[in-house]
Write a protein that binds this DNA or RNA. Sequence first.
DNA 1: GTGAAAGCGCTAACAT
DNA 2: ATGTTAGCGCTTTCAC
Lengths: 346, 346
Amino acid sequence: MSRQAPTLEDVAREAGVSRATVSRVVNGVRNVDPAIQELVRQAIRRTGYAPNRAARSLVTRRAEAVALVVSGAGDTSEEAQAAFAARVFADPFFGRVVAGIVGYLRPRSVHPVLMFAESAAAREEVLTYLRQGRADGALVVSSHADDPLPALLADAALPAVLFARPARPVPLSHVDLAHRDGGRLAAEHLLARGCRRPATISGPLTVPAGQERLAGFRDALARRGHTRVPVAEGGFTYDSGLAAMAGLLAEHPDVDGVFAANDLMARGACQALREHGRRVPEDVAVVGFDDSTAAVDRHPRLTTVRQPVEDMAAEMARLLDEHIHGTRTEPTSVLFDPELVVRESA
Amino acid sequence: MSRQAPTLEDVAREAGVSRATVSRVVNGVRNVDPAIQELVRQAIRRTGYAPNRAARSLVTRRAEAVALVVSGAGDTSEEAQAAFAARVFADPFFGRVVAGIVGYLRPRSVHPVLMFAESAAAREEVLTYLRQGRADGALVVSSHADDPLPALLADAALPAVLFARPARPVPLSHVDLAHRDGGRLAAEHLLARGCRRPATISGPLTVPAGQERLAGFRDALARRGHTRVPVAEGGFTYDSGLAAMAGLLAEHPDVDGVFAANDLMARGACQALREHGRRVPEDVAVVGFDDSTAAVDRHPRLTTVRQPVEDMAAEMARLLDEHIHGTRTEPTSVLFDPELVVRESA
DNA sequence: GTGAAAGCGCTAACAT
DNA sequence: ATGTTAGCGCTTTCAC
């Protein structure tokens, strides 16, 4: 379109020095005469030079980019992929992940390339992408615990870090939350505010997070004498929360406290409660999980177990960075602590 | 880490042909003997060869990547950038944009690199990124109409396409919605269902979309005899919708229909209405705009003016593609039609 | 139809 | 402290 972009050569000529010198000032700049540095800098400004990344990557063998892959377990059609993308982004949780990742990556000027892997073909594409050196590693957020991608990545010895522990062990670093403690926090809060009939809407029991939040909640309750706690399994969606709450109410009309394993389901539960004429928190207290935007963008503001997602995501990026640069070689897992945030719903 | 990745040379040796031949079968493959093609393909499989993108980009001058930049008008600190990222993703609208873009890009195996441009430095970074050839063009979604990025991109003659017409004309292609028609659709629906006291919660009047949705709504109403329509300006957020509705109710307790310029504000309005003892839609009908997930993930499901965001985003990607490949040189604007989706709220 | 060779723009030894 | 030079892995004329 426009005229050729200026190269190192052009700048060198303009400044009256060699390419190597220009390269030195453009990069780490070890020992270049300050006067010459200034000369070169001016030449760069005059020519409007911007280093060609392909050429640099070719020799450094670094793309300065990482793949941010959102993967599932499915094997869906091309169209369904778009729907999958929309669904993922609809979850307020993902925005926090991106914010945390970008917060770490940006200052280091590495950029995230967005990829969706919801089919075997898409997963293969991710591997190829990395093998081509278009990205130096992958940050993986799975929507299912039995996602096959982590194992593929590990087998190919490609640098990767996961958000959340996979259902089946995989030799890859990951960050995670102490979900059990989170469930315990919710239980203790409900009890402390006087609930006598606590119940819970769990996450899918196929994912570790779902199991553990439930286990933590149950254990804490059992320790205080509540051994038979009603539980309805949900799917981490608004609708599933609504349905689960309706079911709970039908079987146990006297529930006075509910722990939903995420905020979206807690919102659904609030709606079901409202439809059945129960006030929140007067009649039934509701505790959510995550502290996503869903917790605060409607009324009543949710009391919830906060997951420090941004910090976790940033740590994920940091771990990947270390794996890429070889400063860390062994798979590592970093666990974060949940925190109770008390608002209006409980 | 692992052993060197296989190169074209390795495959050539393995297959007993020249690099050029391997390159030909890897790419477009014009006239290569079928038998040799097969030979090469097997060699590729055996070696696990994946073409090095940096090397290819160096000669083709194509990154096969585009920048997906979410920009604002501000000049915020580094930390605020993260908050900005989180906010953007919290908007269900953005997920649909990504889905549309990825839907177009994926089959062409070009990948979106996520960038946020909320400060002068960040904007400069986007320009540099493109000049370095790390991305072939930019897809820009601005959160403010007075975003300076589009003009910068145009001045630098970098391929770019915008979502929505900028406040100030810029010689860049863009896609947009016929917002006026959308406002009209809302007005006609409210009238058709018998509203006598319609009001509206507009978007920010600084952005074209805000102005035009309001203008369309007003015009249609005026044409039917309603010349004095209460309007409260909102900011496209849940809270602003809630506050605006409360204000409207205070000044005009008899409103029986409200058009909110987006779904999030419509949700806020529903909440305010509920707090003031009004039923939706029995006492007050509410029409939203966008048809985002916010329209359907709570009750009552929103009657809303649908914006075909995915299609618009895909078109944006298509236009950029044409600009990049030089098949389109003049800035073009493509306008989409809104559509009324009737659900429960009106 | 296939191969030889030049060169894309850069970094990093190595030499000075 | 600076310059010279050899590639990095690929595409693409140009011969054959």
